[in-house]
Design a protein around this nucleic acid. Structure first.
Lengths: 348, 348
DNA sequence: TTTTAGCACTCTACTTAAATGAGTGCTAAC
DNA sequence: GTTAGCACTCATTTAAGTAGAGTGCTAAAA
């Protein structure tokens, strides 16, 4: 798509006007801007061209124009000015984040909540997936005679645990015998690479007490599988209700359903940039058809080279991308830093 | 409040009509009912009386009547017929519950979700509070040199755990020394009764290694405090949007805010009946002012004599209390049974 | 060739008025 | 005490008219 400078200026003016007013933009209101010294009639002609090119839409014959999906995309990719956060804003945001984060284990959820109040927009936070982690140690603890806790320590200091309830009692000695075997066989593997074969092998290696061993191992395997589920937080959804595009109850229903189920939101992991950087989705149909009229600004945050989570801002398609992008960039960066600090080996 | 039989019949008819239609009820539509053989004019007179008594309201001068808050209360307490679930319904509900519950630890959340789809109403589930539990054992496990896991086993087979991240490394021996001391001092106490004094006492009793001990003990204390937070689940809130009373965006905002924050919902614990039985709240202002126009049907479910959680159904004040009450009673009962089965000592 | 002023035309949103109808309250008769 | 009848009220719907924002097109100006 190639536009001359004047068309670009006009498109930009229309998009920004529409973003801030939510009303279709007419030629006159653009002509009034002092920085553009063009008559309304000329702008009308240009608008007609932009519409032909698919960048603008006319809700009805005698109304102003609104940006089309393509129009937003072009704006975000080529026209949008970078919003520079003021020193004030930076301080405020930093304060908000730092002063309210209580527990490190819960940091992604908390940052999502705080950032949601900050932006008055819904925020989605996805925990880094555990699956690429290399198992450092696996510990079975006998809690009571029918209950074992599996504690998996992976690299980066990630720790997960799970309770196993058994049908038959086990003894302390059994656990103590099993522990070194499990560790010898599983340490050094990534969680995803541990499969039933490994488990079977261990079973064969031990030989004794087969019946109970197999049920324990089966549960360990289940536990491992469950652990690589990524957790998805969705915070501050009610904020979306302040937008006039959510005057319609069916729209409200749709978006709340997506956020209630959360399953589709997991798809965002594949769409966010791995390392630094921001991705803007104009229309979230690739996440869920119900998000087709939304804009989503995504960022990956990093804990280590091969471990990243996702944090994203959801709004109507008509959202202040420029501002959201800078703020999200900042938050995502702070989050990465905090997590790196937390999970860097030196800190252990 | 004393009503003659005819007034009762009329009030009941009005409430039930309004519950199913959401439209103000006129004298004629009541007069048409064959079981009442009274003319519309008479009914008008009676309606006037019922309005004077504060049981009915007239939205505007020439409209039909709707039940007032008092009207609903009277209906629920004195007029409502018990809804008997059909065999079909019972089978269906049982199937739904049994076939979908995967993990016992998560049962309350899952039952809430399932029951919410079943009733097409929002469900609130509150986990039994841990605070009355008597500590049976407390186990510190060294996960890595900077990380300890506290596992608390209480009576009824309840188990909770928490990670403690330390600033200084600790040794295996230290943990092994601490474990029996902690157990000796804390076992047999209820979680709420464990306070800083106990912790201080232990610290004095040990004496050595004071600095690190105090931070460990401090964290243990924190962990214990955190554990008696009751978890609140709120599932299927979007279901509320199908009611015409939620055509108003501000109403939607209000109720979603309550459910998003969840803090106020914790108040429900004090309002639910302890043992068997159902409590109906007409207007939830005692929970949160934002729920003043809602009806809430509550039930306690029991794990043991002194351990109960809450499950409740939220709807508009105009909801089918009769049906909801029976279904909730049934579900709450099943939940109690399942939990008792799970947490009964014989099963360990 | 490009830009602009002018004007007729279109379409929505708002206002006003009238018609509809559900439902009441009151009165008088049963 | 009950009921039929009737005048009255008020929300809702329908229709018509108006205002206003904005366009597209044409013809003149640059």
């Amino acid at each position: 798509m190639n536009l001359d400078d004047r068309k670009k200026l006009i498109l930009q003016a229309i998009v920004e006007d529409y973003i801030s007013t939510a009303e279709p933009v007419g030629s006159r209101s653009i002509a009034k801007k002092p920085e553009l010294n063009i008559s309304a009639a000329t702008i009308r002609n240009e608008m007609g061209d932009l519409e032909d090119m698919g960048l603008l839409l006319q809700p009805h014959a005698s109304s102003g124009r609104i940006p089309s999906k393509e129009g937003y995309k072009f704006y975000v990719n080529s026209l949008m000015n970078r919003y520079e956060m003021t020193a004030r804003e930076i301080t405020r945001l930093k304060d908000e984040l730092l002063s309210h984060i209580k527990e490190m284990d819960d940091i992604v959820k908390q940052v999502s909540t705080l950032f949601s109040t900050h932006t008055s927009l819904p925020i989605i936070g996805i925990m880094p997936s555990f699956d690429r982690r290399v198992v450092r140690a696996l510990k079975l603890v006998l809690v009571d005679e029918y209950t074992i806790m599996v504690i998996i320590t992976a690299d980066m200091g990630m720790i997960k645990n799970k309770l196993l309830r058994l049908r038959e009692p086990v003894s302390e000695e059994f656990i103590e015998k099993l522990n070194p075997i499990l560790n010898r066989r599983l340490a050094g593997k990534t969680l995803t690479s541990i499969n039933l074969d490994d488990i079977m092998e261990i079973q064969n290696a031990v030989g004794v007490n087969v019946e109970i061993l197999s049920s324990v191992l089966d549960l360990v395997h289940q536990a491992i599988c469950e652990m690589d589920n990524k957790e998805v937080y969705a915070e501050g959804l009610t904020n979306i209700l302040r937008f006039p595009e959510y005057n319609d109850i069916n729209k409200i229903k749709e978006i709340f359903e997506v956020f209630e189920d959360k399953k589709d939101l997991g798809n965002l992991t594949d769409m966010a940039p791995r390392g630094k950087g921001i991705k803007v989705l104009i229309g979230g149909e690739s996440v869920s058809p119900k998000l087709k009229d939304n804009g989503i600004v995504l960022s990956g945050y990093q804990v280590s080279d091969d471990m990243y989570g996702v944090i994203g801002v959801v709004g109507p398609m008509r959202m202040d991308y420029s501002k959201v992008v800078s703020h999200l960039e900042f938050v995502s960066d702070e989050l990465s830093k905090a997590l790196k600090r937390r999970y860097t080996p030196e800190n252990f």
